[in-house]
Design a protein around this nucleic acid. Structure first.
Lengths: 166, 166
DNA sequence: GATCGAAATGTTATGATATAACATGACAAT
DNA sequence: ATTGTCATGTTATATCATAACATTTCGATC
């Protein structure tokens, strides 16, 4: 595996985003090959669109980009089906509090993720913290509840947008 | 303050729900009086509708109930404005993963809550656990992120729906 | 390389959720 | 009674998502 710059929670503004995208698409190809899933051109293209940046992308934004591609007149179901596929394989996550989607660059393990959403710049960082999921499962279990999927989304200010303050 | 049965995370099926509602409305009146906020008949009625049970209620369900009341032809903004008011004062919470709303019976302290949502029966229990919010704020802070509001929603099976299993 | 079944995509329509923008009404303070 | 503020009414539309059915693609098998 090619060595890349270590991931950071919030990427710097000037980072090599083409590298992020390439890395994510590579990981997706590998993941799908391993699982016998078909990463078709359409699905790959949708994943690429979602990877436009590190801010969530809405379904109708994806739709607009597809239409700009010109090839065929895409409709909402096209987009939602592709997103469903990508979510099923851990390649994108849905941000419930924004009705939007964000790419995941480490689809290898099953996970639902925890998200830090900057209210100022809109960037999102993903965490996959065992201590967080552990305490959630434990607290739930103490009440007799079996946790199957945790939605954890924190809204606040990222390091850049805090500036020196905070 | 009248002594009531201790709250449980997931209320039993046969519990005295009228008591839940009365208690919540009382708490709301007090809360609003303390803060100089006006719990108008409309807002009170919306709160009561949301308190129909311990499962989340969608905005358009509220709208339908209001229309059944007959008094005037309610429209979506009526409902969303009332819900906004109630959320602002901690009287209801929004469940992001369901696009629905649930009553809160302890509006006294500022809190965003953590929710256990049963995928089988649809009931929701609210937690306000300092250890959970603590670990979230701490983990976020370690990455330079300042958490302002946490959305925590666990999907799974409640004690009743697990049966003896689990 | 024909055929067949399953999966993917196309297409049309509609359902579900939410807000903008402006008009009117209720109410408290003076 | 007048005025300013907050609440509600009203109309229209934006935004998010899926149902239902048609067609195409593609691999597997013969």
């Amino acid at each position: 595996m090619k060595q890349r710059t270590k991931r950071r929670a919030f990427p710097r503004e000037g980072h090599d985003h083409a590298d992020c995208v390439a890395s994510a698409l590579d990981a997706a190809e590998t993941r799908c090959a391993d699982r016998g899933a078909r990463l078709t051109p359409l699905r790959r293209r949708v994943l690429e669109i979602v990877w436009r940046g590190h801010a969530p992308v809405r379904a109708y934004e994806v739709l607009d980009r597809l239409r700009e591609d010109g090839a065929g007149a895409a409709a909402p179901p096209t987009v939602y089906r592709a997103l469903d596929f990508l979510m099923e394989h851990g390649l994108v996550h849905r941000i419930e509090s924004l009705n939007a989607f964000i790419g995941c660059d480490h689809p290898d393990e099953a996970h639902s993720g925890q998200f830090l959403i900057c209210r100022d710049c809109g960037l999102v960082a993903e965490l996959d913290d065992a201590e967080i999921s552990g305490v959630l499962a434990r607290k739930a279990r103490a009440l007799g509840f079996v946790d199957e999927r945790a939605t954890v989304e924190l809204r606040g200010l990222c390091p850049e947008c805090r500036g020196g303050r905070g």
